[in-house]
């Protein structure tokens, strides 16, 4: 299920003293079954963008199409003046296509297909046991209780929490374990698209690595994974496609290797440390091939190769 943004803009609290424009004329195609990273400085519009995908927010103008669902503004735009009959007909046809009326069951169906894991999702845990908390999602989407519990168990095992956790209270777990429970809660509804917002914030490096490897497995199983992050080291290691946002606009869409190696300070981003170091060596005159570098060990080997050749 691809996601297509078409000239989408969004304003928070329009026509109030707190009015602020968060997204500006976004056109973007996110292909399915990929590991996609959305990067940009804090406040660049990343979180607002993803909330359009599962219709937590609706555009102020433009639209985003997710499979057959179109998230559109509440009000239809006025037809521009001075159109000829043919253009008027085309306008009307397009209007009819985009402005489908959504019933609440359509939105529910969309949210089942698009799972969104917020920042610090562990703050949203609420049930008495881990099992109940994870089963809440599928039950909420109308799955029978036994089936919901079965999905919950499967999801918990996928995130690396075994049977010994099922009957425990989520509140007595460590921060990293709580986050796994929260992620399992979304996985239990088997989304086709999984959106994760800064999933490694506040996790220690080992837990962060486990979490990222989990998302890679989920992608391999055929789910689109959309990662919102400002950690470029994660992007270098895991993402297949990267979307750079700045001031509510999409500045660039490319493969990670194409992005690294150029000056990223204009987007308030830094190259991953390995690329940054390699670039400085290049500036100081060492000929070093950065192609295919993904880890510190790769970098060490590239340095040694260049010393041997030089």
């Amino acid at each position: 299920m691809p996601i297509e943004f078409s000239r989408l803009s969004f304003v928070y609290n329009p026509k109030s003293p707190f009015q602020s424009s968060a997204l500006n004329d976004i056109s973007l195609l996110l292909p399915e079954k990929q590991f996609i990273a959305i990067v940009g400085r804090t406040g660049s519009g990343k979180s607002t963008l993803i909330q359009q995908i599962n219709a937590l927010l609706s555009p102020t103008s433009g639209y985003v199409q997710i499979g057959d669902f179109i998230n559109h503004p509440e009000k239809k735009p006025k037809r521009p003046k001075g159109l000829n009959d043919e253009e008027k007909a085309a306008f009307k046809k397009e209007e009819r296509r985009i402005y489908q009326k959504h019933k609440s069951k359509d939105i529910k169906a969309l949210r089942k297909r698009v799972g969104l894991v917020f920042q610090f999702p562990e703050y949203q845990l609420f049930e008495e046991t881990v099992e109940k908390d994870v089963a809440f999602g599928p039950k909420n989407f109308g799955v029978k209780k036994e089936d919901a519990i079965r999905s919950a168990h499967e999801a918990l095992l996928r995130v690396g929490l075994d049977e010994s956790f099922f009957q425990r209270s989520p509140f007595e777990l460590s921060g990293g374990e709580k986050r796994k429970v929260a992620i399992a809660g979304i996985l239990a509804t088997s989304p086709e698209i999984l959106i994760v917002d800064e999933p490694t914030a506040g996790l220690d490096p080992a837990a962060a690595k486990e979490t990222m490897e989990l998302f890679t497995k989920i992608r391999d199983a055929g789910t689109t994974v959309i990662l919102v992050t400002h950690d470029m080291d994660l992007v270098a290691t895991y993402a297949q496609m990267v979307v750079v946002m700045e001031n509510g606009r999409v500045e660039k869409t490319c493969a990670p290797s194409e992005l690294f190696g150029q000056d990223l300070t204009q987007y308030s981003l830094q190259n991953p440390r390995i690329f940054d170091f390699a670039l400085r060596l290049k500036q100081k005159g060492l000929t070093i091939d950065t192609e295919g570098i993904r880890s510190v060990n790769d970098l060490a080997e590239a340095i040694i190769r260049s010393k041997q050749n030089g």
Binding site: D204, R273, V296, A300, E301, I304
Partner: peptide, 29 residues
């Protein structure tokens, strides 16, 4: 105990492991 080293220390170690000798006074990036 599940902690990483800062980039500088990891790279220095990776080079040492591959037989590059780096004197002790090399202590910053």
């Amino acid at each position: 105990i599940r902690l990483d080293a800062p980039f500088f220390f990891s790279l220095k170690q990776a080079l040492l492991n591959r037989g590059i000798s780096i004197p002790d006074e090399i202590d910053t990036e």
